[in-house]
Write a protein that binds this DNA or RNA. Structure first.
Length: 231
DNA sequence: CGGGTTTGACCGGCGC
DNA sequence: GCGCCGGTCAAACCCG
């Protein structure tokens, strides 16, 4: 297992709203309409599909998707009271990139994470997983669903649009950049961990969009529980 | 034996 | 109306 790094000077989580999500949300479950849930998609450079993020997931389906040689996997949170789902698929453009889409809000913290390394705090210290865990927390604690204007803090994949892209600002003191600079990247062993995948941010299409990370700490405090924070 | 994974079938939305 | 496609179900299977 080797996790490769993309040459970003500031590796960070990439939150996107895939175009497919718009139609996917309209899918109904056997006769009953499904409530629209907040969704966040993350692109992660990793050889493994299912990244540890502090929660436990049960796979309930896998489908081949059109225009992609890679199947898409469907996971649900194992907590029976929790309705959060996630989809995991590989990018057809870059097979080394895993696209994870989270849907819904966790009604619990990472208490269910009890395997192996043992705890959300540890997961948070594994920088790649931290990114995803952070994203998890965002999806869990941002309610009502985040508005585009408050989410655009990271490099944009697309022009601001409520349906085409969602990003989020990152915390000043616990940004993923800091995680990468001060935590996981320099830690031997972590890079060999299956969890130590690098969640990436795509470069903005326009140089006018600064790659700078600016997170509202208050927002962070709202969305990231102490257990997943550093420092 | 319990919990998780695999996989084919089924359902509903959407575009034509 | 029809076919395609994404999402989910559920039985069979696997594994610790």
């Amino acid at each position: 297992m080797a996790v490769s790094l993309i040459g970003f000077d500031s590796a960070c989580v990439c939150l996107i709203r895939p175009a497919a999500a718009a139609t996917a949300t309209a899918t109904a479950k056997k006769g009953q309409k499904r409530a629209r849930q907040p969704r966040f998609a993350f692109m992660t450079k990793s050889e493994i599909d299912h990244l540890e993020d502090g929660y436990r997931w049960r796979k309930y389906g896998q489908k081949a998707v059109k225009n992609s040689p890679f199947p898409r996997s469907y996971y649900r949170c194992t907590n029976s009271k929790c309705t959060v789902k996630k989809r995991v698929e590989r990018s057809s453009d870059d097979p080394s990139v895993v696209i994870t889409t989270y849907e819904g809000q966790h009604c619990h913290h990472t208490a269910s994470f009890q395997r192996g390394v043992g705890g959300a705090a540890v997961a948070a210290h594994i920088h790649g997983a931290a990114a995803v865990a952070l994203a998890e927390q965002m999806s869990a604690f941002v309610s009502p669903p985040p508005q585009p204007h408050m989410l655009y803090g990271l490099p944009r994949l697309h022009p601001p649009s409520s349906e085409t892209a969602v990003s989020c600002s990152m915390p000043t003191t616990t940004s993923l950049q800091e995680l990468n600079n001060s935590e996981g990247l320099q830690r031997p062993g972590y890079n060999n961990s299956p969890q130590a995948a690098v969640t990436i941010a795509q470069r903005p299409p326009s140089p006018s969009v600064p790659p700078a990370v600016s997170f509202d700490k208050g927002l962070l405090d709202d969305i990231v529980p102490p257990g997943v924070r550093l420092g």
